[in-house]
Design a protein around this nucleic acid. Structure first.
Lengths: 269, 269
DNA sequence: AGAAGGACCAGTGGTCCGTA
DNA sequence: AGAAGGACCAGTGGTCCGTA
């Protein structure tokens, strides 16, 4: 009942075709307030990206790919003025819709071509937080138990209110990147600029986000939970397994180093 | 590896045959310190209850009851000096072992006959807390995620270290009784005395434990979580569904009463 | 009838791997 | 090769109901 039009609207044009059926389901209601600084920054981009939204709703029978047209990945690094592809409609194919892949952008930068930027990625985390708050309010109203984290229930709610571009594997995949952004925006921004500069792909940037977090945890006895939990926007996210493991491994290494600091293992005695 | 002999030992003789195989598995190691006030109080009772512990380990094939000997429930309200029944061994049956049922006892009172008292019930909750703390320590040591509640993992751990008399359905069943004990020991004790006096069974006492808790929650806007969470011994237990529902129902009733307080529903206008 | 607890079940956290 | 996400799976919270 409580549909979150605001969040859905703020999406407009950011991901290239984020929600065909969802828009239809919600109606494309006129712009409500609450526009964030980031959304304002994005506004300039929007005009050139407001098309392609029809396309048959992904039929559930679609899975049987009749003619395997080997689509080579050449449309990837397209020039920015490709004028927003109606290429899908051209052939009338019923395509599997997915979000455009992320590229490493610096803060404030909008991804061009069929790509999404990192500001957009982080925005998804804030949308999830809003969805969680809605789910919590509904639960309290009904006297049901109230989730403290972004759970399956929250992802289901996101889908229900039309944010089909939000899904669990994606959000879990980049949690630690968002964590760095929350905890040390300076460091996060510097890392993004550096990786953009080097022309690194998203995977490389994502990997590089771990180390600064481990360093922060080291200052808390490698207790990553004590880093996540006190932070209001981060505490609602499960600590990623790999980050937890990295912290643990570093703690053990530090301990091993400390206990064999002097030649001959002096500290062992 | 970290076996919790202490807790297991403190059980000695309280439940009649709490752990036959478990004792064997753990060895009946000599008494370690850490004896609680309640355990001291119980010590006098122990001498008369230190037998019956052999009995074949409950065979897993046991389920097919060959000769259905209709055991009538006459041995129930036995006199207290029944001298601790070796009756099981007498017939050499391979019986399904379970804990003796609870009876309503007043604080400090030990159940006689094949019964367990309420102090013993509450002691089980404290054992679970100890098990949780062990599980948490192990998790931290391994750098794994650390439970904040008594989870399946904790019940599994309890079984592993020999506390087979602890199980999830039982602990969940009486959580709110333990909650009242934690939050208002005076009220809890008074209720126990009253229900023992009236000769009520455990089920009736258990039901009666809900209302005082709802009344406490009412003082917090019927938010039962705000009652459980700040309490160090209670916060590790999930709020029982029925208690949550009762609080919600009472909130709604109170609201309905408030909005139709004057004749003719004045407040509605 | 009253009660203990094995065992089941719907929905979870976690992430792999078939897909594009 | 790099990436998005449907869908699976082991183990969870919750408690019913066959058992004693």
């Amino acid at each position: 009942d409580v549909t979150n039009d605001l969040d859905a609207l703020s999406q407009e044009g950011l991901s290239k075709e984020p929600m065909q059926q969802e828009k239809e389901a919600m109606g494309s209601g006129g712009g409500g307030g609450g526009t964030s600084a980031w959304e304002v920054g994005m506004a300039a981009e929007r005009k050139k990206q407001q098309r392609q939204r029809r396309k048959k709703r992904a039929a559930s029978t679609m899975k049987s790919s009749t003619t395997t047209t080997t689509t080579t990945g050449d449309e990837e690094e397209m020039e920015e003025e490709e004028e927003a592809g109606d290429d899908d409609e051209e052939k009338g194919r019923v395509e599997r819709q997915r979000e455009h892949p992320f590229i490493v952008t610096e803060p404030g930068e909008v991804a061009r071509g069929k790509k999404n930027g990192i500001d957009y990625l982080f925005h998804l985390y804030e949308q999830c937080r809003d969805f969680l708050i809605h789910v919590q309010n509904i639960a309290r109203e009904r006297g049901e138990k109230c989730p403290t984290k972004v759970t399956n229930q929250v992802f289901r709610y996101a889908k229900k209110v039309g944010a089909s571009y939000i899904n669990k594997p994606k959000m879990r995949h980049y949690v630690h990147c968002y964590a760095l952004h929350c905890l040390n925006e300076e460091a996060s921004s510097a890392l993004r600029r550096a990786f953009k500069e080097k022309g690194e792909n998203v995977g490389a940037w994502r990997q590089a986000c771990y180390q600064p977090l481990v360093a922060m945890a080291a200052g808390q006895g490698w207790d990553i939970d004590s880093i996540f939990n006190p932070h209001p926007r981060l505490s609602i996210w499960y600590v990623p397994t790999k980050l937890r493991q990295l912290c643990h491994a570093n703690r053990n290494n530090a301990y091993a180093a400390a206990t064999s600091a002097s030649p001959g293992g002096y500290h062992r005695l």
